[in-house]
Design a protein around this nucleic acid. Structure first.
Lengths: 256, 256
DNA sequence: ATTAGTATTATAGTATGATTTATAGGCTGG
DNA sequence: CCAGCCTATAAATCATACTATAATACTAAT
């Protein structure tokens, strides 16, 4: 069983590996929802770790809402709506078992719900320092046309700066969601693959920044909405073959 | 120090108490962001638990993004934007240190961003069974005019049924956010306090349900938006109104 | 026969000490 | 002055023993 679990890139701590292993097995349905996990002893042997490391992994998973342990009754896999989907690890584990068009659709749907309005609030609340931060990230994107990795990093920084400027801590904590979306998108369809596409992407980002700079919430919101919509389309085009529930982004956020 | 930590209602496990204690101290700024927590030995003495229990608590907090441990350097309190604000415990710990108007404002702001659009998608995707579930919850609300606790429970069930029907797992996992908002709102201003208010609240919920029932995403979305706005006003949050005043939400959900 | 209470027992929870590993900071040699 | 090698320290891990809890089975009283 463990052989099928995708290896994490770098060596990590024991409990981290175990959490990763169990988490991924839950995502893949090998530990089905509602089922009871093997007991401590069996899992210890399975992963070749001590009780301490195993239990720490369990606590990590429990903290993310994946499992619940009760004395005598065992450890059960909780229902999906207990899972904290805004957790970076959970999203990562999801994506590691293969990029699913539906999952990407949900990801973009959430972005479409939150980011345009985050831009709107940022346009009203942003400080000078936050504007500078956005500008720095934007400049970094301009300069990273050649480096896919550098571009992704700068792109994420730009979006995070906006979230930061929104002033809402809930929005500020969804960086992992956006990061996952960006990273995955770029593996499918890089925005720096062609010069034309690069300029289009930059134009959109510039529009978002300008809207926030000019304290124009409506413009900023609309620009971000366009940006996300196109990003989603770029990804979904590559996935037409998975005809099953090809979730379109239906939500448009407009202005009066 | 520990005396100031609000006691949880019911007795819980040792590591749970420790996680709660440290978590709350972080929220209150007694363990400031960026600072290094006391070492294992000191914390063990402070909370009167073994290393095992302490470390499990640490892993719980680390899983929620509150802290990060590194060998030799110690355990540091991470920056706010690493915290997973959609975690039920984190919200709870926030609220336990006293209801903060700003925090409530942020809570309602997020609801205003997500729930109307969740209604819109639910209006398109909902199954018959999900409609029945919403109806059940709605009926329970009608019948719980006398019981504040029962009403809150039914109210939450109604909102969760909508999230469920949206089909998006990210939305499905924000039940804790809504739950916290509802519970806190009701301690401030109960919707069943007067007959008049009760009828108004029920009218709004009925409008949301009708919109979803009739597969009318625009109507459902708007009804939910109204509902949340009024709920925010009841707890005297001017925040939401002002920040979203410039950008109206108009969700159109079209089917191809 | 049904119910209420009690004993059993499997399993998670907790405690403790020993051991290993990682790294900041100092030390040595170039 | 720098690079690479020690060393001290605190976290990470292991191993084992013990405790608390609750599901199950069993017993006894009605």
């Amino acid at each position: 069983m463990l052989n099928d679990v995708q290896r994490p890139a770098r060596a990590r701590s024991a409990h981290d590996l175990v959490a990763h292993g169990i988490g991924q097995n839950i995502m893949q349905g090998r530990f089905p929802i509602g089922s009871t996990l093997p007991g401590d002893a069996e899992l210890m042997e399975l992963f070749g770790v001590s009780r301490t490391a195993l239990r720490e992994a369990m606590k990590t998973l429990a903290a993310k809402g994946l499992i619940e342990s009760k004395t005598k009754v065992g450890t059960k896999v909780l229902d999906r709506n207990n899972w904290n989907m805004f957790d970076a690890d959970i999203i990562e584990w999801h994506l590691e078992m293969g990029v699913d068009a539906r999952f990407l659709g949900w990801l973009f749907e959430i972005r479409q719900m939150l980011e345009p309005l985050a831009c709107a609030t940022a346009a009203v609340r942003r400080t000078e320092e936050q504007l500078k931060e956005m500008h720095r990230a934007l400049q970094a994107m301009y300069q990273c046309e050649s480096s896919r990795q550098g571009f992704t990093k700068a792109d994420l920084a730009f979006h995070q700066a906006i979230l930061e400027a929104s002033g809402n801590p809930f929005l500020q904590s969804i960086g992992s969601v956006i990061g996952a979306a960006l990273a995955t998108s770029f593996t499918i369809s890089s925005p720096v693959s062609s010069d034309e596409r690069f300029r289009e992407v930059m134009r959109q980002h510039q529009a978002v920044f300008d809207g926030i700079l000019q304290a124009n919430p409506a413009a900023a919101s609309e620009a971000m909405s366009d940006l996300i919509l196109q990003a989603a389309e770029r990804v979904q085009i590559k996935h037409v073959e998975s005809s099953l529930a090809n979730v379109q982004i239906h939500a448009f956020t407009g202005v009066e």
